[in-house]
């Protein structure tokens, strides 16, 4: 079947089979290999992508579901001129990854969290992010990175409000 959707801000359309998962389509057809496959059971979060702003496990989510929806992968986060998203920069600043396999999913889950509520407490970060696993870092760097991005996004938010 043919589906139309928005991929990282651009209109896209693809001929898909109903059995194809979003991860398969994004990795093999769209060459967006930032979508990582690990547990394939919706536990680890490494295949997290955003569909209409909400995180889904692309490993167990049919590509069929993205019809007429917005899909965001890690490749779509930085501004076109190469300016990193505040979360990407914060992950670098706090060494919030080692092998990096969980990182795209972590950043996208965190983006969804902060887009929904930028005034987020440590408890809220921990509760929301507990569905994304990292085997390398022990999570502290990731927590610090999300805190930093939250502070920066809050500042931008205030700035935008005062100038509008």
């Amino acid at each position: 079947m043919k589906i139309g959707f928005e991929l990282n801000g651009k209109a896209a359309s693809l001929e898909i089979e109903p059995r194809e998962t979003l991860a398969e389509v994004l990795r093999a057809r769209c060459r967006l290999t930032g979508v990582k496959l690990s547990c394939e059971a919706q536990v680890c979060g490494s295949c997290t992508v955003l569909v209409d702003g909400l995180p889904v496990s692309a490993c167990t989510y049919l590509a069929y579901e993205i019809r007429d929806k917005r899909v965001t992968t890690i490749e779509g986060l930085a501004d076109p001129p190469g300016r990193l998203h505040p979360l990407q920069q914060a992950f670098l600043d706090h060494f919030a990854f080692q092998c990096g396999f969980c990182t795209p999913g972590m950043i996208l889950a965190a983006k969804s969290l902060l887009d929904e509520n930028v005034h987020v407490s440590d408890e809220e970060i921990i509760a929301y992010m507990s569905g994304n696993l990292c085997r390398c870092t022990g999570y502290l760097g990731i927590l610090k990175a999300i805190r930093q991005a939250s502070a920066e996004m809050k500042a931008t938010w205030k700035e935008n409000r005062s100038t509008s």
């Binding site: 997290t48 909400l54 889904v56 989510y61």
Partner: peptide
């Protein structure tokens, strides 16, 4: 329930 991704779908 479960995690945010499971809840979202």
């Amino acid at each position: 329930v479960a995690n945010i991704r499971v809840r979202a779908t």
